[in-house]
Every structure is written in C-alpha cells, then in structure tokens.
C-alpha cells in the first residue's frame, strides 16, 4: 500500500455533499434501540462518482434514503451545496433498486411525469420532446409507448435511468441499480451510465455489492463495516485512469491491487475493523487510502494469490 499523487485536478467543491454525524436507530421489539450506524461522516466532492460497498444489512440503503431525503436521520444532518436537506428534492434524483416505474404509464409517460414535475410550466410538446431525448439516450427509442410490464428487466432499469437523468439532478443516487440484472445487461448499462455521467460531470452516489462494478465506475469507493453500528472504515481512491475501458481494465497494473484490497475488506476486515482500528482513526475524517504504484507492479500484479478472498466473496 503506497501513497501516490492522483493526477486528477482537485475538485472545486470538496464538500458538495457533506454527511455530518448522521445516525439511524430503530426501536427494538423487546424494548431499547438498535443503532444501525451512528456518527457517520462522509464527504463527496462535486462531480465525483462514489460507490458505497458493504455487507447486506449494514445500512447502505438507509444512508442513501437519508441522502435522498426520503428518511430523516435519527441524528445529524446532510449538507448539500451548503444547505441542510430537509426532504426529497428534484436536485437529487434516485434510481431505485426495484426500478419503481409507474406500471399504468408508458415508458414515455414515466419519463414525462418526471420532466413535467421538474418544469411545471413547460408545454406538452416541450415535455415530450425532452422525454424522448432521454429515452433515446438510454437506447430505448421505439419503445416509448410500451408499458413497463412489456419490458425486460434491463429495459425497465433503463427507463429508471432516463427518468432520473431527465430532470438534470445535481446529484444522482443509485441503490444497487443493476443487481437484479444478468451479467451481460449489467455490463452494457454500466457502460452507458459511465458514459453519460462522465460526459456531464454528474455527481453520483451509488450503492453496490459488486466489487468489479465499483472499480469500473467509481472515483472513490467507500467501505462500510458490518452492522449493527456500522461505520465508514475508509475511502479508497480508485487509482485506475478516468478513461478506463471495460475490456482492458483488468490488465491495468493497479487493478488487482484495488480488487484484492476491496475483497479483503469484505471478507475479513469489515468484521474485524471495529476492534482493530488503525491508529488515529477519526470517524469525522475516515482515512483516504491510495493504492498501487509503478514501483510495486512486480508483486501487485495478478499473481498474488488470495484464495480466501476468491472463495469468500458474497
């Protein structure tokens, strides 16, 4: 593990999203409260693609729902662009895990619903024209009049993406958007989301279970420990270049360093981290980890065996 300089320019607004000490607690059935997480701090700079990974049940969806404003945190606050959020907003679009399309509306109707909510005074033709543009962007031209029930899982998720992007949100929030799809479809959609987000400089927070997805898409990968009382263990700076390509990414010298680090975390450190915190760990400023370096190529290459890691992935 070595520190290297990231070549990317320092983002203008490193605290674009600032999660400040949020907690999520639920009352236990037998009395008392369960703390899913508490005192959680995290910052997302403007224009970055951040993935959160962690085991099932650690509270990722809860974090995302709080970011979306759909749930209020039990404690703490989320500041977006200098303002504490107080509820859902058109500035933060959500792509839901279960696509959440309105089944009685056509593809066009679903996207137009979002567009006309964003621009209340827009005329019908304007709304339709814009909706069609985004439907085309996600490759669904020709399916505008179909109902969600007539679409495949991948197509539905595309509509969800079109709907979210069509309102030009400041922030895109995604909760395991591709986890229900087959590998091939997932790959294509990842490519598309990456292309779109890169070209518009979209700020994205995405939750995933999939290590490879995180490496392919993210600028930063946030590692959450197991719940209850989950915390942000560290933020991994993705050393892969911005112009990475799916078919050659695994040949990059740092690919397996990052991958092994993430898998290693999920397999063991997510469990043990709490009792084995690095010296100087501060929940307010989770450490940023930079991996990989030209000097370490020799041993960081794909030859490092991680048998436990390979078997233990979830």
């Amino acid at each position: 593990m070595a520190e290297i300089d990231t070549k990317t320019a320092v983002p203008a607004d490193p605290k674009f999203i600032s999660i400040e000490g949020i907690a999520r607690r639920y009352p236990k059935r037998e009395g008392g409260v369960t703390t899913i997480f508490e005192n959680l701090w995290l910052q997302v700079p403007r224009g970055e693609f951040v993935c959160i990974i962690g085991h099932s049940g650690c509270g990722k969806t809860s974090v995302l729902n709080i970011l979306a404003g759909l749930e209020a945190p039990s404690e703490g606050a989320v500041i977006v662009d200098g303002q504490a959020i107080s509820g859902p907003s058109l500035d933060r679009a959500v792509i839901f895990q279960g696509h959440a399309l309105l089944p009685w509306r056509s593809v066009l109707g679903n996207v137009a619903y979002a567009v006309s909510s964003r621009w209340r005074k827009a005329g019908k033709t304007e709304v339709e024209e814009r909706s069609r543009r985004f439907i085309e962007l996600v490759g669904l031209k020709g399916s505008e009049q179909k109902k969600p029930a007539e679409l495949s899982g991948g197509m539905r998720q595309r509509v969800g993406i079109a709907r979210a992007l069509s309102i030009e949100p400041k922030i895109l929030l995604m909760d395991e958007p591709f986890s229900a799809l087959d590998a091939l479809t997932r790959g294509t959609l990842q490519d598309e989301v990456r292309r779109i987000c890169l070209s518009t400089g979209q700020t994205v927070v995405m939750i995933t279970h999939d290590v490879d997805e995180a490496i392919y898409l993210a600028d930063k990968i946030v590692l959450m420990t197991n719940g209850p009382e989950a915390m942000v263990a560290e933020v991994v700076d993705n050393p892969l270049p911005k112009d990475r390509a799916r078919d050659s990414i695994h040949r990059h010298e740092d690919y397996y360093t990052v991958r092994n680090h993430l898998v290693d975390f999920l397999v063991s450190r997510s469990r043990t981290f709490r009792d084995d915190k690095p010296a100087g760990y501060d929940t307010r400023r989770p450490p940023t980890v930079r991996l990989g370096s030209a000097a370490k190529v020799a041993d960081a290459a794909n030859t490092i065996p991680f048998p436990a890691a390979a078997n233990g992935r979830d």
């Binding site: 058109l90 619903y113 979002a114 309102i167």
Partner: peptide, 20 residues
Amino acid sequence: EWLNVARTLEVGAWRRAFTV
C-alpha cells in the same frame, strides 16, 4: 416505492393523489 417516486419529484399532494 411509487409514493417515493412522487416524493423525490416533489409532486404536490393533489397531483400525487390524482397521478399516483
């Protein structure tokens, strides 16, 4: 989830009642 869609789109109560 449908109600949440309306909420994230800041749809007002009346519109939500009739459109969702």
